[in-house]
């Protein structure tokens, strides 16, 4: 086995940290803490995107996930704070089954992954992917329709969320 390169070292460190923070996200009792650890996890994933030469993805990861979704989750946690149980078990009675399923899943996937010969990293330098991505999303020959469908879906989700979150008449 050849020597461990700098990129590999960086990957291993980032990956381990990210997995560790993720573990904390799914296990800590205090949900505020979990949300904060989630931010850390998302940030770690952004770093991984950078390692994959996907700078735009990393930017989106930070802006969208950390800037929007994570904050949203923090707000949700705070809004439902009154019934949050910081004491007592945070897992249901089937947690061990969940653990087994997750573990078996991971084991199976890993076994599969490691049994396959994956292609090596292509040598070609990746050019301006942002421009290509932008063009592809508005190109009728490529992804304009999924893009438009996604935008419509976002609008619907937005309206649906507002409708759902609005106080109902009965609850007044």
């Amino acid at each position: 086995m050849e020597a461990v390169s700098a990129a590999q070292i960086i990957f291993i460190v980032v990956a381990l940290l990210t997995v560790a923070t993720t573990f904390l996200v799914v296990t800590v009792r205090n949900l505020i803490h979990a949300a904060l650890w989630l931010v850390a996890t998302l940030f770690g994933i952004a770093v991984i995107f950078v390692l994959l030469d996907a700078g735009f993805m990393a930017t989106v990861q930070i802006v969208l996930y950390i800037g929007a979704i994570a904050i949203l989750i923090v707000f949700a946690v705070m809004l439902t704070r009154r019934v949050m149980q910081d004491v007592g078990p945070q897992s249901n009675e089937n947690w061990w089954l969940g653990t087994i399923v997750a573990a078996v899943f991971f084991a199976a996937i890993s076994t599969l992954l490691w049994s396959i010969r994956w292609p090596a990293l292509p040598g070609a330098v990746v050019g301006d992917t942002v421009l290509a991505l932008g063009r592809s999303l508005v190109d009728p020959n490529q992804y304009v329709i999924p893009f438009e469908v996604a935008s419509v879906m976002l609008i619907i989700a937005l309206i649906g969320s507002i409708t759902l979150a609005l106080p109902g008449k009965q609850s007044e």
Binding site: T18, V19, T22, V26, S91, N92, A102, A103, I109
Partner: peptide, 14 residues
């Protein structure tokens, strides 16, 4: 896969 499994655990057990 590790992240997915951890997420799965959260979905199943939390």
């Amino acid at each position: 896969a590790a992240l997915f499994a951890l997420g799965l655990y959260a979905v199943l057990a939390r």
